[in-house]
Amino acid sequence: MNFAQLLFPDFSLILIGYLLCRFTALNRKVWEPTESLVYYFLFPVLLFQAIVKTPLEVGTASSLMGAGLTLGVSGILLSYSLPYWPWIGRQIDPRMHAASAQVGFRFNSFIALALASKVAGPQGLQFIAVLIGVCVPLFNVGAVWPMARHAKKHFGGELLRNPLILATLSGLVANLMGMHIPFWLEPTVTRIGQASLALGLMAAGAGMQFASLRSAKTLGIAVLTVKHVGLPILALGIAMLFRLDPTQSTVLLMFSAVPTASSCYVLAARMGYDGPYVAGLVTLSTLLGIASLPFALGVLAAIR
């Protein structure tokens, strides 16, 4: 599979957003309300649809759910342990780390959904829906908590107002209750989801400043190493620990290696942190996905 070709659309949209913001009249005044539209409406609709549209067979997927939660918790702990690492920890600014640690464990659900059926067949889409359902609430809690703490905001309030968490939980409830989006509404919902992908990635590019990456190079290298090296290796061990079948193992390895979530930038910017720096990490993570996906699905899958 040509992973570079698969990731090119996402990377090119980020680049287009960057070029439009820097070299046309579509400057930051245009993109700031766009970020709010994506974060509070478009992306939650897409997430709700992705979870509701694929029935979850909880009983048959319990091992995968346990493996996904274990991988998620491990990734969060690894990302937040960086300030305590010898030598590296002394060079990490706590506030910058609070905004950037999420890059080390979150994932791009668009790419994950696009890849699932290609690498694992029809069942792959169902398995990735299970992982999205159990991991998105966990990852959003892990992302919001340190930023709320450093910004001295009420953690519970931030979670209750987080549209991504609300969309995920409502999607899970609707799925488990057997509810579906009415057929006459599906085209509209699908188009909203498609818009969230394009605008979200372009907004990340519009807010990007490559020079900002120089302000915390050690932190950036550490977080991206956790994401693109640490998580795939952890996924291999967890797949063996939970004795996942080959298809589930493939999906878990793919899940661990996809680039980080484009909404990392939007979340950091909305909570008053250094959005351009996080956007730079998102861009680098998208590029590194070209290497980490073959590493996980080729080298590590062969070991499995």
Rank of each mutant, 00 (worst) to 15 (best):
F105C: 06
C264M: 15
Q123T: 12
P9W: 04
P182Q: 13
K153N: 06
P122S: 03
F48Y: 12
I16N: 03
T188H: 12
G205M: 03
S79P: 00
L115R: 13
V58D: 05
P86E: 10
Y265S: 02
E57Q: 11
L244V: 05
A261K: 12
F48A: 10
S263R: 09
L138F: 04
F8S: 12
L297F: 00
A25P: 07
L199F: 02
P294Q: 11
N108M: 02
A269G: 07
Y80A: 06
H154G: 14
I181D: 05
A120V: 06
T225L: 11
G156I: 01
M202E: 00
V58M: 13
F107Y: 06
L244M: 04
R28N: 00
G133V: 02
M271H: 08
T283S: 09
F48K: 08
T260Q: 09
C21Y: 05
Y18A: 05
Q91G: 10
D93T: 04
F295A: 07
H180Q: 14
T247I: 07
G298A: 08
G66C: 02
L284G: 07
Y18W: 12
P33D: 03
S212Y: 13
S79L: 03
F107T: 02
G237K: 15
L78S: 13
A195V: 05
M96P: 04
L37C: 04
F48Q: 12
N162T: 01
R191C: 12
S196D: 04
G68T: 07
T188Y: 15
V58Q: 12
K53S: 07
A4P: 09
F11I: 12
L185R: 14
F127L: 09
R191K: 14
A257P: 05
A148D: 13
L56E: 02
V38E: 06
E158F: 01
V278G: 00
G75L: 02
I221A: 15
G142A: 11
G220W: 01
L231T: 06
F8C: 08
L293A: 08
P83M: 06
G272F: 00
A4R: 02
R90A: 05
G68M: 12
V226I: 09
A257Y: 08
S81K: 12
I88V: 11
T190K: 15
G104L: 10
G289V: 03
S36F: 01
V258R: 14
I132W: 06
E158K: 14
L176Q: 15
S12R: 09
L293C: 10
S285G: 01
L82Y: 01
M254Q: 11
I192A: 11
A269L: 00
I51D: 04
P187N: 08
L138P: 06
A50R: 15
P137A: 10
G272V: 03
V223I: 14
W31Y: 01
H180G: 10
L234Q: 12
P246Y: 01
A112L: 08
V38K: 15
T54I: 05
Y40W: 12
Q49Y: 14
L219R: 09
M65S: 15
